[in-house]
Structure formats: C-alpha cells, structure tokens
C-alpha cells in the first residue's frame, strides 16, 4: 500500500533548539492514523510543519506524488491536505455560512453548494446557526464548524488536531463517532490526540510521540495492549 502522506525524519522547531528530532510517519488512503502524545510532545509542531505554516529544518514531507516540504499552506491546501487546527481557528467575525464558504476558498469551489448541503446534513446543528457569528458559538459547535469548514475543501487527508479538547465527555463521544463515520465514507484521517483510549478505539494504526520523537508505533489494537503505553498514559 503506497502512502498518501509520508513524513520522513522531520526536524523542526521555533527558536534555536529543535522541538522535533526527526519524526517519521505515514498515512495511507482510507486510514485513520492516530498521533498520540502528551501536551508538549511536539504534535502540533509536527502538524504545523506538515501543513506549511512553518518551514521544517530538515526532513521530507510528501503528499500523494508531490514533495510538499517547502510548499506554502495555500499550495498544500490546494492539493487536498487539510488541517482542522487545535483551538478551532474559526473566523469569529464571520457568520457560520461564511466560515463554511471560505472552507472552499482554495479547493472544492466547483462543488461548493453541494458540499455545503452535505456538511449541514452532517452537522444539523450548524444549519440552525447559519447567520450567527462564529465567535458566538459554543465550543462544541465551533469544533463542528471547524471540521465542516475543513470538509468544504474536499480533503484527501484531514488532519484533526485535538478535536476532543475542551468538549464535554458526551460531545467527545459524538466527535469520535463522527470521525469514524467520515472515515467509513472514505476519508483518510490523521488524528492528533491526547485522548489515548478513544483514539486507539477508532484508529487503524497509531504513533506515540514523546519529546519530539516517535517512540512507539504499530497497529492500534496491538498498541492498546502494550504494557509500556498502558503504564505511561493510562496509569495501569
């Protein structure tokens, strides 16, 4: 199986010291891959470099047949690698409708009306809020909007950064069910999470990141039974 996203030996950071010390990861079409790790492990740095928000120091990122290591975010979005960032990053001063329309700014413009309907079917709650400013939505609704906005770009791979962060347990449950459903419809997902148990439950494969390095990887089912992982993240 050839990889859709392939990241090799990614080294990146912000100041003088690197945060990532060579991370390697790949995602194949149709997969849910979980990237797990505690706060500060380097997961978001990983994402933001893959998506072109920062320039990686070393390593190689390829998506489909293209090398996107030095690409800017707009070009990466155009290829169909879409990130739903941590903290949602919806446009607070724009209405829900406008947020969704902007999701198709760079990609998916031709089918915008159809995808818009599809997103509203996926998130009926957003339909009731279409004219409302996104900044006035609840945290859960903003998360739905952020994912909906991502879906508007017809992603080939959706990176979800901490989608469960700040949601009530019930909503977290709903969120993971939704991710599973989107995947069943054919969408490849890179799920970046601290929530180890629920992530492993829906993922096919998983990577565990610690201090900027991938320390563990494998089939999600195998990892769920891994004694080291259970000890480190579940206290068992």
């Amino acid at each position: 199986m050839s990889a859709l996203l392939s990241v090799q030996d990614l080294v990146a950071g912000y100041g003088p010291a690197p945060v990532l010390h060579g991370a390697t990861l790949d995602v194949a079409a149709g997969e849910i891959v979980a990237l797990l790790g505690s706060n500060g492990a380097g997961k978001s740095t990983f994402n933001n470099n893959v998506c072109g928000l920062y320039r990686a120091w070393a390593g190689r990122v390829s998506f489909g047949d293209d090398d996107i290591t030095a690409s800017d975010p707009a070009r990466i979005v155009a290829r169909g690698l879409i990130q739903v960032p941590e903290g949602r990053r919806v446009f607070p001063n724009l209405s829900v409708r406008e947020n969704l329309l902007l999701g198709a700014y760079r990609r998916g413009h031709a089918n915008r009306a159809r995808n818009f309907e599809h997103v509203l079917e996926t998130f009926p709650r957003l339909r009731e809020r279409l004219a409302q400013a996104a900044g006035t939505l609840s945290g859960g609704e903003q998360q739905m909007l952020a994912i909906g906005r991502g879906l508007m770009a017809e992603p080939r791979l959706l990176i979800l950064d901490e989608p469960s962060l700040g949601l009530s347990p019930l909503l977290v449950e709903e969120m993971f069910a939704l991710i599973e459903r989107l995947n069943k419809e054919g969408l490849a997902v890179l799920l970046v999470e601290q929530n180890v148990v629920q992530s492993l439950a829906i993922a096919h494969r998983a990577y565990v990141m610690e201090n900027g390095r991938i320390v563990l990887s494998g089939q999600a089912r195998t990892l769920a039974d891994d004694p080291a992982l259970r000890k480190a993240y579940l206290g068992m």
């Binding site: 998506c51 928000l53 800017d72 975010p73 707009a74 990466i76 979005v77 155009a78 879409i82 990130q83 739903v84 960032p85 949602r88 990053r89 919806v90 446009f91 607070p92 001063n93 724009l94 406008e98 329309l101 902007l102 999701g103 700014y105 760079r106 990609r107 906005r149 770009a153």
Partner: peptide, 23 residues
C-alpha cells in the same frame, strides 16, 4: 464576495485563514 470574506477572515484569524488556503 469571496475576496471580501477572505479580507474579513484575515482581519481576525490569520492562522485559520492560512489553513483554508488564503494567501
């Protein structure tokens, strides 16, 4: 217009704007 929406989006949320592919 899309341009107008992009202008307003950038005014408030630059990171989010980059992630929908706005230059």
């Amino acid at each position: 217009t899309d341009l107008g929406r992009a202008i307003r989006a950038v005014a408030k949320e630059r990171q989010g704007a980059k992630l929908v592919g706005i230059d």
